[in-house]
Design a protein around this nucleic acid. Structure first.
Length: 432
RNA sequence: UCCCCGGUAGCUCAAUGGUAGAGCGAGCGGCUGUUAACCGCAAGGUUCGAGGUUCGAGUCCUCGCCGGGGAGCCA
């Protein structure tokens, strides 16, 4: 019977066939231990020369690492096995023998990340990378499940756009039938239009930033989910954000326990992630930053060291709200208490992972939005449709964007965001 | 774009300005319970590139290329 390695525990005592790749081996004279992986897991297959014959034993002994194989044998429970089971080989055959000298070795050496990135297509086969991809997939499923089960409609925004959404960051320019066009940096403006049609919506897809950022937190192509809700104001938005983030974390804790273990993630820190998150006014954040011994002038946006100072001492994400309007995007609603501040919120993950969510209540007043577009020197013609949303039945509305890779990096506890997407696109890096 | 560090065998790293080495991997041999197995044998090099200093450069200098870390900006 054909089986996947992750299910072998259910087949103890019976004969199964698995198909996969040779991951590693230890040969001891007339007995061979062949580690086979099939994408669902790794299992040790035991071949005894006297039982399987010289020809099959030669495969166990000699077939190079990563050769593709079909193995059949009897599943047996064994305490010595890390997975609890092993496979007593009856038959083994090679589908395709791998070339010798597979670049990524299992033993002893931890290769440099530059080398691994150059071999990203092969690196994905390793245990930790496979675990990361599974956690990423779980986060994505969690995103869709969270919104779908709360009455949100998924409405995707275009990837090719005619102009800068926010006019601030550098965009990738493309030639669109001899017209300039750009890869989107955010679907938000389109999500706002959709929210006026369907009430509660979210868009989810890749976004692009041509910033020359070279840090562990940046990719030039990354995935972002952006909910947008009509009639929602800042307080409601913060509640939505904390429920959403908690849902993603708890879901991974429940369903990706094994993967978190492979990654050696300290899950006690994640277990505490549940609403409510601490809310901190920008002014109080400034005070805390200074109390932590950093110099910080009022009015600036938070940099990486400041984010770390703000979250210090918290084991849950911190929501910093009401940043100075001057450093934030043109479409943010001013705080009625003090117009110097915007009704916005950033969710900062603990443990130094920084901003995973940025969101705000949007300006719904036509005249104010018109003025802001002017002040930011944005081409009005590109925003006529966006202004229309305020012309025909404007309502208060809010939304945020969550970066998938940053969230995965935090949940999985990885040092660098580049491992949290299958094939990362970074500054000057586009291979493989 | 700016600042810092680096580039030597397939990988990870050594080598006072004086004959380029080790561990691991890959290859061969040995071993019936190994857990990043172990033991033995043998192979493996345009020291990133171009100039320069020097009797002599992997090592010092200049420029370039590539990689890594960080900053700003952001998710």
């Amino acid at each position: 019977m054909r089986a996947y390695i992750e299910d072998l525990k259910k087949h103890v005592g019976s004969e199964v066939e698995i198909r996969g790749w040779i991951y590693n081996r230890r040969v001891k004279g007339k007995i061979a231990f062949v580690l086979v992986r099939d994408g669902s897991g790794v299992v040790q297959c035991v071949g005894v020369r006297g039982e399987i014959g010289d020809e099959r034993f030669a495969i166990c002994d000699k077939a190079p690492q990563e050769s593709s194989v079909v193995v059949s044998g009897v599943v047996r429970a064994d305490e010595r096995s890390p997975g609890g089971v092993e496979l007593g080989i009856r038959d083994i055959r090679v589908l395709a023998e791998a070339a010798p000298n597979y670049p990524i070795q299992i033993q002893d050496v931890v290769p440099e990340v530059g080398f691994l990135m150059q071999n990203r297509h092969l690196w994905l086969r390793s245990r930790k990378q496979a675990a990361l991809l599974r956690i990423r997939a779980e986060v994505i499923r969690g995103i869709q499940e969270f919104f779908d089960s709360r009455g949100f409609m998924r409405v995707d925004s275009p990837i090719i756009t005619p102009a800068a959404c926010e006019g601030t960051t550098n965009l990738f320019e493309i030639n669109y039938f001899d017209e300039k066009a750009y890869l989107t940096q955010s679907g938000q403006l389109y999500a706002e239009a959709a929210a006026m049609a369907l009430g509660r919506v979210y868009c989810f897809g890749p976004t692009f930033r041509a910033e020359k950022s070279k840090t562990r937190k940046h990719l030039t192509e990354f995935w972002m989910v952006e909910p947008e809700v009509a009639f929602l104001e800042l307080d409601g938005l913060m509640e939505l954000a904390e429920q959403f983030v908690s849902h993603l974390v708890q879901r991974c804790l429940e369903r990706r326990k094994e993967e978190l273990k492979v990654l050696e993630r300290d899950t006690t820190k994640l277990e505490k992630v549940a609403p409510p998150f601490h809310r901190m006014h920008y002014n109080d954040a400034v005070e805390k930053i200074r109390k932590e011994g950093l110099e910080f002038p009022w009015g600036e946006d938070l940099g990486a060291p400041h984010e770390e100072a703000v979250t210090k001492g918290f084991d849950k994400p911190v929501m910093v709200h009401r940043y100075p309007a001057a450093v934030k995007a043109f479409y943010m609603q001013p705080d009625p208490q003090d117009a110097k501040h915007a009704l916005c919120v950033d969710v900062l993950a603990p443990e130094g992972y920084g901003e995973i969510i940025g969101g705000s209540q949007r300006i719904h007043d036509f005249a104010l939005l018109e003025r802001r577009i002017e002040e930011h020197k944005l081409p009005r013609s590109a925003f006529e449709w966006y202004l229309d949303l305020r012309k025909y039945g404007a309502v208060p509305h809010s939304g945020f964007g969550l970066g998938v890779e940053r969230t995965v990096a935090w949940i999985a506890g990885t040092e660098h965001i580049r491992e949290c997407i299958p094939f990362p696109r970074m500054l000057y890096k586009i291979y493989p």
